[in-house]
Every structure is written in structure tokens, then in C-alpha cells.
Design a protein around this nucleic acid. Structure first.
Lengths: 189, 189
DNA sequence: GTCTATATGCGGATAGAC
DNA sequence: GTCTATCCGCATATAGAC
């Protein structure tokens, strides 16, 4: 064995996410990643055929981690506060991993519909809003909730709420949605 | 006059936005922009000192245009449907100018608080939610509304609602917020 | 005001030796 | 499996001639 294995696929992925976390998406180049792993850039192509495959793997990991956050946030909270708890968990994830979160939402990195991580996340959201609203479908409510959460954390991350901050916009929004979901179900009966 | 003026600052800006609309942000380079105007890249620096100044000008133009859309959408609609009308106009703008919209929301392109176009937009949103909610502040409601709208159009543009589409998520979300804003004001009295 | 030429830097990816 | 060397492309921006 003249050239013993220095790295594994898992290490490559973990290090990529670490760079993302520490220095952002612009800093994540194959050269930088290799240097950070103590190898040269061409070696990385033994583990991921191109950069976008690596990015997609990072997105999958992010999806799984986000689901963990949200599930943990919902545990041991009663139905009435469930949406708010889930929302806080979502926001917490985006704060902890801002660059990974942005990557997860990029258009060019949409995973195929077969992606387990994406489906699992969406199914959890649907179950959540069904539980709150009593609706049997939940698509519309899920879309509305996800839209609000994504919009809020995106604008917050971009610093668009200015010096005055978001005030209670987060709570106001979620409470309004929660009430609206329940009411909408009454009408649809 | 050995070298007569070929372009104006306004033309540079207009052409930049056109490229953005037609081919996206990645296609907007100083070289491409120059070529599209029939000049060479260095000439552009007579009109904008660097690329980011040009991008900021594009964002300002976008802000003004978005405000026009929203104002037009609200005209001749009664109070009860105001938020939905404004929302549809916001969405319509994002659909018409997706790449300009994305640029407007980029963190690195946040305009200084002195920016007239940004302030005017935010003031209009505040007036809108105050009108609906009766609240005298409106910051929290404005934040919630903006979050929902931005989140929805971002996810829609990124194709994240999948084949099934957003269903009635847009309407459900806005109606819920409208109802919630009014209710919140009752409590705060 | 526009030009040519260039400085300087970045990136992804591959061929082929060891 | 890792390496050196390299190809190829992109970009922003500037100096100085005309």
C-alpha cells in the first residue's frame, strides 16, 4: 500500500458542512475543502464525482438535521402550542446553520422527489398541520406554514428587519396561522 | 469629438435589468453587459464605479416597481380584500421579475436605511396592516405579512411546492393573517 | 468617452505518473 | 488512492493610448 487511505466519503461531507458553517458557501471550493482535509483537490473526485453531488449530499444531511430539530421542538408540547414550538425549532436550526439552510433552499439543489429526507420533512409538516386544523389534506396549510417560516428566517438572516428588529412578528404570524387553520376547517365541513 | 457618446447611465441600468430578466443573475457580468450595449467592458466604469453600485441601482429600481405593483393592486379594492389584493400584486411582481426580485432580497445588496425606495415600500406595508388591524404600530403585523409573502414567492420560484402545486396555500395564509391581525388588536386593547 | 492590453484572481475538472 | 501538472473557463478592475 504505497498510498494509504487518508480520507473517507463521510469525512469529505462532514468537512464540507463545517466549512459551510464557518465561512459560508462562497468559501466552499474543492480546493479549499481538500486543503482543509490535508489532501489535494483531485483526490476528492474519488468520493464525489462532481461538486454538485457533494452539495446535494449536504442538503440531504441538512434536511435530516432540520427534521430532528423540529421533532425535538414538538416533543412534550401540547396541541395548542405545537405550531409555535415547531416554528421556534425551525428558526433555531436556521440560526445554527444559516449557510446550510440557504443551500437547502437553492433552486439548483432541489432533490428528486424520491429523496427520503425531503419527503420525511414534508410529511411531518403535513401531520403537524392536520393535527392542528383537523383537515384531512393539509397541503394548503402546510404550504402556508412553510412559506411563513421560510420567509421569516430568510429575511431575518438577510438583516432586512433592520435595527428595530422583528418585534413580535414571528409569534403574531404563527398564532394567526394556527387560528386560521382551525377556522378554515370549520368552513370546509 | 473623436469618440462620441454611445451609452448613458440610464441605458446601462436598463440593459442590466433586461439581462437579469432574460438570463438571470449569473449572466449579468460586466463583459456581457458591455457586449449587449455594443461597447467594451471598461467603458461601463465611467457610469458605475463598480459592479455592486450597478446592482444597488437595479435593486432601487426594483423596489420602486414593486411598490407600483402593490399600489395598483390595492386600488379600488375594499378593506376586507386589501391584504389579499396586495399579496397577489406582490406575487405578480415576483413572477414577472424573478431574478430582479431575488437580487432585491440578497443580503449583500441591502440598501442603507436612507434609501427612499426601501423606506417607501415598508411604509406602505405598515399603512396597509394598520388599516386592516387597527393597530397603531403595525411593525409585528408588517413583519408577519412580509415574511409570508417573501417565503411563498421564494419557495414557489424555487419549485419547492412540487407537482401538486401550492393548492390554496396562498389564500389560506393571507386570510389567516388578516383574521389574526384583527383579532390581535382586540386583545391588545 | 472608448479603446486595447493586461493584471490578478478565482473556480471545476481531467490525464496520467506513482 | 493520491499526486503533479495542466487545461480551460470565468470574473472585476485598471493603465494608458487615442
Amino acid at each position: 500500500m504505497p498510498t494509504p487511505t487518508k480520507i473517507t466519503q463521510k469525512q469529505v461531507l462532514t468537512r464540507a458542512i463545517a466549512i459551510l458553517d464557518e465561512r459560508g458557501a462562497d468559501a466552499l471550493s474543492m480546493r479549499e475543502l481538500a486543503k482543509s482535509l490535508g489532501v489535494k483537490a483531485p483526490s476528492l473526485y474519488r468520493y464525489y464525482p462532481d461538486k454538485i453531488s457533494l452539495e446535494r449530499a449536504a442538503v440531504e444531511t441538512g434536511n435530516r438535521l432540520l427534521l430532528e430539530y423540529v421533532k425535538a421542538g414538538c416533543r412534550r408540547t401540547e396541541k395548542s402550542g405545537m405550531l409555535l414550538a415547531a416554528g421556534h425549532a425551525y428558526r433555531k436550526f436556521a440560526k445554527a446553520k444559516p449557510h446550510l439552510y440557504s443551500l437547502m433552499m437553492e433552486k439548483r439543489l432541489i432533490l428528486p422527489p424520491t429523496s427520503e429526507s425531503g419527503k420525511a420533512l414534508w410529511e411531518f409538516v403535513l401531520a403537524l398541520v392536520r393535527n392542528v386544523s383537523g383537515d384531512t389534506d393539509g397541503t394548503a396549510c402546510g404550504v402556508a406554514l412553510w412559506s411563513f417560516l421560510h420567509g421569516f428566517v430568510s429575511l431575518e438572516q438577510a438583516g432586512r428587519f433592520g435595527a428595530s428588529g422583528s418585534r413580535d412578528g414571528f409569534t403574531v404570524g404563527i398564532e394567526a396561522l394556527a387560528a386560521g387553520f382551525a377556522a378554515a376547517n370549520v368552513h370546509s365541513k
